[in-house]
C-alpha cells in the first residue's frame, strides 16, 4: 500500500516540478531558441573549431565592452579548451596561448621603480578588462553595465541558448512600443514592457529593452576555417565559447561521471547479489 502511495506521490511531485520549471524562466521574455550543442548529453564535448571561432567573435566584438575576468590565457591550452593540443600537455608551452597572450597588455608594477606600467601578458595572466572599473564601464555605456562574461552562460536560466537568442534575436520594435533612448527592443531579453506599451494592454509584447545595440553583423568577423560568417553562426559560436569559459571542466566532468556511474552500477549489482545471498535463508 505504502509503495503504491509513494508512487502516486512521486508522480505528483514530478508533475509539479515539471510545471514549475518553465515558469521560473525569465519573466516576460520569449523562450530561448532551440539550439543543438556539441556539449549536450552525457558524452558531449566542446567542438574545438567552434570554440576558436567563438573566441574570435568575443575578441573582435564582445571584448570591446565585456570583460572575461575569470579566464586566464593558459586556460585556452587546457584540455577541452579552444587551443588545446596533445603536443603541449602544459598549456604554458602552447605556442597559440603564448601568441594570444602577447597581443594583450596588462597592468603591472615595475619592480625596480615601483611605477605603474603596462607589459605584454603572459599565459598566467587573466584576461584584461576593457574598463578600469564599474563606473568607467557605465560611463561609456550610457549608464548600463556590460556584465562580465566569464560565467554568463551559467548565470542565465536558459544557459548558452539564452545568449544565442539575445544576440541573434533583435527585431524592430512593434508599433505602439516607445523605445527609450539608448535602449533596443529584444524579445528574448527579460523585462516588463507594460509601461512603454500603448497598444492593447492584454497583448504587451514579450521581451525587454537592452542597452546593447545589435552586436553582430554578417561577415563582421572572418572565420579562419572558412565557415560562412552569418549572424546565426557568430551567435552560436560565441555562445558555445562562453559556455566553455563558464564551465571549462565540462568534458572532464562528463568523462569522469561515466566511469563513476559504471563503477557504481556494477557495485550496486554486486551488493544486490550479496544481499540476496546473505538473506536467502531468512524470511523478511
Amino acid at each position: 500500500m505504502l509503495r503504491k502511495l509513494s508512487v502516486i506521490a512521486a508522480a505528483v511531485g514530478i508533475l509539479v516540478a515539471g510545471a514549475a520549471g518553465p515558469a521560473l524562466a525569465n519573466g516576460g521574455a520569449l523562450k530561448a531558441k532551440e539550439v543543438h550543442w556539441s556539449f549536450e548529453g552525457p558524452f558531449g564535448s566542446y567542438d574545438q573549431a567552434q570554440l576558436q571561432r567563438g573566441f574570435k567573435v568575443y575578441r573582435e566584438v564582445c571584448a570591446a565592452c565585456h570583460s572575461l575576468k575569470l579566464v586566464s590565457f593558459r586556460n585556452f591550452g587546457d584540455r577541452g579548451g579552444p587551443f588545446y593540443s596533445e603536443k603541449y600537455p602544459n598549456s604554458n608551452d602552447n605556442p597559440w596561448v603564448k601568441a594570444i597572450a602577447k597581443d594583450y597588455e596588462v597592468n603591472d608594477i615595475d619592480s625596480e621603480t615601483g611605477d605603474a606600467i603596462k607589459r605584454p601578458a603572459t599565459s598566467a595572466d587573466h584576461f584584461p578588462s576593457p574598463f578600469a572599473n564599474e563606473a568607467a564601464a557605465r560611463a561609456s555605456n550610457g549608464g548600463a553595465l556590460p556584465p562580465d562574461m566569464s560565467l554568463l552562460a551559467k548565470a542565465r536560466e536558459e544557459g548558452p541558448a539564452h545568449i544565442y537568442s539575445v544576440v541573434t534575436g533583435y527585431v524592430d520594435a512593434p508599433k505602439g512600443l516607445t523605445v527609450p533612448t539608448g535602449g533596443h527592443y529584444n524579445p528574448y531579453f527579460p523585462g516588463d514592457l507594460s509601461s512603454a506599451w500603448h497598444g492593447d494592454h492584454k497583448s504587451v509584447p514579450a521581451g525587454g529593452f537592452i542597452a546593447m545595440a545589435p552586436p553582430l553583423k554578417a561577415d563582421l568577423v572572418t572565420f579562419d576555417d572558412g565557415t560562412k560568417s552569418t549572424v546565426d553562426q557568430q551567435g552560436k559560436d560565441v555562445a558555445a565559447f562562453l559556455m566553455w569559459a563558464a564551465e571549462p571542466k565540462l568534458e572532464e566532468r562528463k568523462q569522469t561521471g561515466f566511469a563513476v556511474l559504471l563503477y557504481l552500477i556494477i557495485l550496486s549489482g554486486l551488493l544486490y547479489a550479496s544481499y540476496k545471498t546473505v538473506w536467502r535463508n531468512e524470511s523478511h
Partner: peptide, 19 residues
Amino acid sequence: VKDGFAMSVFLILFAFFVF
C-alpha cells in the same frame, strides 16, 4: 549488506546530479 546496497543506489542518483 542491505544498507550498503541502498547506499550504492543512492550514490548513483547523487553521481547523476554531480556529473
